[in-house]
Design a binder for these strands. Structure first.
Length: 596
RNA sequence: GCAGACGUAGUUCAACUGGAUAGAAUAUCGGAUUUCGGCUCCGAGGGUUGAGGGUUCGAAUCCUUCCGUCUGUACCA
């Protein structure tokens, strides 16, 4: 048993023994003690004064006395108002370290037997990925890894929006202005080529609107009647009728886009276990409409359209099927939710989608629960905030989007530039150097986007994101590389790293104890990050850990330490820190170098 | 209009979900190294937590009224 748990157990016993009352174990919790006070863990007694029937000080003092005599880990305590600060015995830190150090599966919690699907990325095939998608992809990947580490079986899913009027727009523009251009002939990545025609459509469409308005049409009429739009709508009809020419063009252009996306995904370091295509799923959900009508969850209006009434839940009436019997967005989302369950029998389903769709998912989940789906309670919308730029909002029409490919390239180049200036990579082959730049550039970018609470909107400052100091990915990567250098040297001079080699230690420095406390926290942080779907919690933890290690490194000698037990211990502590950093960083999708 | 989210040092973010004197990073200023990697370490200044009221032992956090920013509110996806 972890000694934090044993302290909590002790507190529970203390309540029984001192105050003859029972408190549930899950109501008790320890917080790390603030630096200004003596001690490592703090128990706040205020909430339990009713049970003790005593003043805060007296309650805390009685509990402290009990713990000091009955729990081995607690060596001493002090009371400040209602705060009981516990001082942990030195030997306890050492045995705690041994426990962590010798654990083979540190950083992986036991299976909980539950299956969860994480859907993320979900791009449109008419334009390339931008900064907002980067946040989505990094978040989705990391949350999936965190859930795995927390004991879930995880299925990563991508739902590709590969059909609809927006794709037809790119296709129409390509027919008009493409002149048979291909990725090869243009030298453009496939997704960028498609995006180019999407933009072309928009400019020509606007021009047509303008001339129609000059000919006397209202703005609304002009929008509806512009020939290009009519063509796109006609093309969508043909696509739905499986017109062979349209399907051929659609296949060709989508093929280019997928090739482009795959390259981008590879560089981002994300992957998927299953890919769903809307061209296959867009007709799903109509049987659920029937089911809902039969169950009385939905109702029909005179014109034949089908609705759900969510006014009792604080929402509106919401359309689930048009009067002409065709689907809307939510129809196919209902169908896809069932499909996911049929395919994998998942207990939970996480949708990583921006917060502008909060309302939509609120509606969808309420419907699925009303329909009594077994996976209903496990539906979760991981709603993340927008990414802003210092210049304001990203708007594709105003050309202020930050392209994902360009940004990644820029980050890697900056990393290369930085590293070359420092001149610390002599002996690297060309390939090793390239790999390192990639690691650092992508590490900086991912860390920058993941260190912020996903729910909040965030500001992307290009200058700050490529900083290598402070709360950044490269700072943590550097810390790892530095430890790796120590481990190489330790191996060279043959330092004994077995737990037995420092079994006789009794005194620890403050930074050493603090490091152990942090290392021991790792699995708790994984659990918390997974429960909150927040990689930011882990990112913050890794930064704290790297900082604490650097303090330890600056204060205490390792190879200059004469005492061989202490030397072995400090190398082992370094090794455990490196392992934790490496594992932790991998959970937020970042690799760490051995040298940099 | 209605609904929801957000507002914290100059700036970007935290605050263990109601706990101690609101913390980091960055920028600014000052210091450390005959040493295992200076992309390091130590220190200083910087705050009426948008404003007011309430709840209680205790509020950045909960309730309420304003102010401000954003999002949603389509038989679009």
């Amino acid at each position: 048993m972890n000694f934090q748990d044993s302290i909590l157990q002790g507190i529970q016993d203390a309540f029984t023994s001192c105050f003859q009352t029972t408190v549930a174990l899950d109501q008790l919790s320890l917080a790390p003690t603030k630096k200004e006070f003596e001690g490592s863990y703090t128990f706040v007694v205020f909430p339990f004064l009713k049970q003790s029937q005593l003043s805060p000080e007296a309650t805390a003092t009685q509990l402290g006395n009990y713990l000091k005599t009955h729990v081995a880990a607690v060596k001493d305590f002090n009371v400040v108002k209602g705060f009981l600060n516990l001082v942990v015995a030195q030997e306890e830190w050492i045995s705690l370290f041994n426990q962590v150090y010798t654990s083979k599966i540190f950083g992986q919690l036991p299976s909980n037997g539950l299956k969860v699907m994480v859907e993320y990325s979900s791009p449109n095939t008419n334009k390339p990925l931008h900064l907002g998608h980067l946040r989505n992809n990094f978040l989705g990947y990391s949350v999936a890894e965190l859930l795995k580490a927390a004991g879930y079986e995880v299925i990563k899913a991508n739902l590709v929006n590969d059909r609809g009027i927006h794709i037809c727009k790119s296709m129409v523009a390509y027919q008009h202005f493409g002149n048979g251009e291909t990725p090869t002939s243009s030298g453009l990545k496939g997704d960028h080529l498609a995006g180019k025609y999407y933009v072309l459509f928009d400019t020509h469409y606007k021009a047509q609107q303008k001339s129609l308005m000059e000919a006397g049409q209202s703005e609304e009429e002009a929008k509806k009647n512009a020939p290009l739009l009519l063509e796109a709508q006609e093309m969508l009809r043909k696509w739905e009728d499986q017109d062979s020419d349209v399907i051929a063009l659609w296949n060709q252009m989508n093929g280019w886009v997928y090739a482009g996306f795959n390259a981008t995904y590879q560089r981002m370091g994300v992957d998927f276990d299953v890919t769903y295509y809307e061209s296959n799923t867009y007709l799903l959900g109509k049987d659920i409409v029937e089911e809902g009508l039969a169950k009385g969850v939905f109702f029909k209006k005179e014109n034949g359209s089908v609705w759900v009434d969510l006014t009792a839940e604080g929402l509106d009436e919401k359309l689930v099927l048009r009067g002409d019997g065709t689907s809307v967005y939510i129809t196919q989302d209902m169908g896809t939710a069932d499909l996911k369950y049929q395919d994998y029998q998942i207990n939970k389903s996480v949708y990583v989608v921006g917060n502008e769709q909060d309302y939509h998912f609120d509606v969808l989940f309420k419907i699925m629960r009303k329909l009594g789906r077994s996976y209903g309670p496990g539906l979760y919308h991981l709603s993340y905030g927008m990414v802003d730029l210092p210049t304001g909002k990203m708007k594709s029409r105003e050309g202020t989007v930050v392209d994902a490919d360009e940004l990644m390239e820029e980050m890697v180049e900056t990393a290369a530039h930085h590293t070359k200036e420092l001149g610390k990579i002599e002996g690297f082959t060309e390939a090793q150097a390239t790999e390192l730049y990639e690691m650092l550039g992508m590490g900086a970018l991912k860390y920058f986007l993941l260190k912020v609470d996903p729910k909040k909107r965030m500001l992307f400052n290009p200058q700050e994101s490529i900083e290598f100091q402070g709360n950044t990915g490269p700072f943590i990567q550097y810390s790892h590389a530095r430890i790796a250098a120590i481990l190489r040297k330790a191996e060279q001079i043959g330092v004994n790293l077995s737990a037995e080699s420092f079994a006789g230690l009794s005194e620890l420095a403050e930074t050493e104890a603090a490091l152990i406390q942090l290392l021991n926290d790792f699995e708790r942080k994984i659990k918390q990050a997974a429960e909150d779907y927040s990689p930011a919690i882990l990112a913050q933890y890794l930064f704290d850990l790297a900082k604490e290690y650097n303090r330890f490194y600056a204060e205490l000698p390792i190879f200059h330490e004469k005492d061989s037990q202490l030397q072995s211990f400090r190398v082992a502590l370094s090794l455990q820190t490196a392992k934790t950093i490496k594992r932790g960083m991998s959970l937020i999708g970042i690799q760490v170098p051995e040298r940099m």
